[in-house]
Each structure stands twice: as C-alpha cells, then as structure tokens.
C-alpha cells in the first residue's frame, strides 16, 4: 500500500515527507513499546504509535521503518519532525485511535507482521 493511500483512507495530515508518498509499505506495526518495534519490525513497514518523542524516530531509523503514523491526533515537536527529515522517514498524523487505524488499514489490505516471522 502506498503512503499516499494510507494518508487518504485515514484522513491523515503529512507532517513531513510529501515527496515520499509514493513509497510502498507491505506491513503495519502498532506499538508504543520501542523495543518491540526493534525486535519485530521488518523493512517496508509503517509504524503506528501514540508516542511522539525523538526516540520513536531513532527507533524507526535503526529498524529501517518506511513511515511513522501518529495516532489519536498526536503531533510531535518540531525537533522530532526535523529528525525524521534528516532520516528521510515520512511522518503523518491521524485523529483515529490505534485500534480504528489498524482496522481501516487491514480493511484496505495492509497486513501485520505474522507471528511465524517473529
């Protein structure tokens, strides 16, 4: 699924990365636990989270996450957006909660990381 489609179906705002919207993601991973993100995420993943500190972007950087989608209307500080920019990670925000966001994306064909890949 393209980041652009994810933006559209979630009525999300792009906080940074308008040029990166044609990137494809194969999986979504929803978590506020950054060590779980580091343990389980594969490349080609969009991270769904309610955490907005700089460690979320650092975690995404290390795990080669394609894009970060903040849920529940969360918006990070400018320095966090700047860090995403330095690492070419698209960041978006949606008003939906994590569960609803996940459900909508699942409905549009995006899948989670399967347990046998963990």
């Amino acid at each position: 699924m393209k980041i652009r489609e994810i933006r559209d179906v979630l009525n999300a705002d792009v906080l940074w990365g308008e040029d990166l919207l044609d990137r494809e993601v194969s999986y979504a991973f929803g978590s506020d636990l950054m060590s779980d993100v580091l343990a389980f995420v594969k490349t080609g993943t969009i991270l769904l989270t309610g955490l907005v500190n700089s460690q979320v972007v650092r975690t995404a950087e290390m795990a080669d996450v394609t894009a970060i989608l903040f849920v529940r209307g969360k918006v990070p500080d400018e320095e966090v957006i700047q860090l995403a920019k330095e690492n070419s990670i698209a960041i978006l925000t949606t008003k939906y909660t994590l569960f609803t966001t996940s459900g909508i994306l699942y409905n549009y064909g995006l899948r989670g990381i399967e347990a046998d890949n963990i």
Binding site: L33, M34, S35, L38, L51, Q55
Partner: peptide, 15 residues
Amino acid sequence: EMGFGAGMGLPNMKR
C-alpha cells in the same frame, strides 16, 4: 512512558 523499559533490550541485543 518513553517507550522503553519493556525488558526486551538485552534479549534484542542477543538476537
């Protein structure tokens, strides 16, 4: 609250 302290750090390093 910062997203750490889930007790996965050392196991992740080993992995």
